[in-house]
């Protein structure tokens, strides 16, 4: 019985593995999204990830290469991984980009603010889905 409960929970979790609806009204702009991803102060993505950014000499290898992510994951799955990646993997080191609760000792200048705005998330997403 307990193991069935676990399996059901796990399956339900797998299906809840996406956020289908956009966070903001405006459609994301892939060009702006690319700039955010490449910017080490704004997106911070290349601290950990690699990607198709020949102009960026310094990229990370703590995380999967972003190339091809648009064919590996659906738009809703990527959105969830930007908003709160711990919902896909509780142990993840990837920061939640659109979440302000459950954090400890956030520096005053960042307190109460998500890493990216809803519009920026949609821009990043619009870019990532083009990486086939």
């Amino acid at each position: 019985m307990t193991s069935w409960a676990f399996v059901l929970l796990f399956l339900a979790g797998a299906r809840a593995d996406e956020i289908p609806a956009p966070l903001s009204g405006a459609k994301g702009d892939p060009q702006r999204g690319r700039a955010i991803v490449a910017n080490r102060q704004v997106g911070l993505c290349l601290l950990c990830h690699n990607g198709p950014f020949p102009e960026e000499r310094f990229q990370g290898d703590l995380a999967p290469d972003l190339r091809g992510v648009g064919s590996r994951l659906t738009e809703g799955e990527i959105r969830l991984r930007l908003v709160d990646p711990a919902r896909a993997n509780p142990q993840t080191i990837m920061p939640a980009y659109y979440k302000t609760d459950g954090l400890t000792r956030v520096a005053p200048s960042y307190r109460g603010k998500p890493v990216l705005s809803a519009e920026q998330i949609e821009d990043v997403l619009a870019y990532l889905v083009t990486l086939k």
């Binding site: 911070l44 080191i93 920061p95 939640a96 954090l103 400890t104 000792r105 956030v106 520096a107 960042y110 603010k113 890493v115």
Partner: peptide
């Protein structure tokens, strides 16, 4: 302990 906006 995780800390900061980046929660690391």
């Amino acid at each position: 302990r995780r800390q900061g906006q980046l929660n690391l």
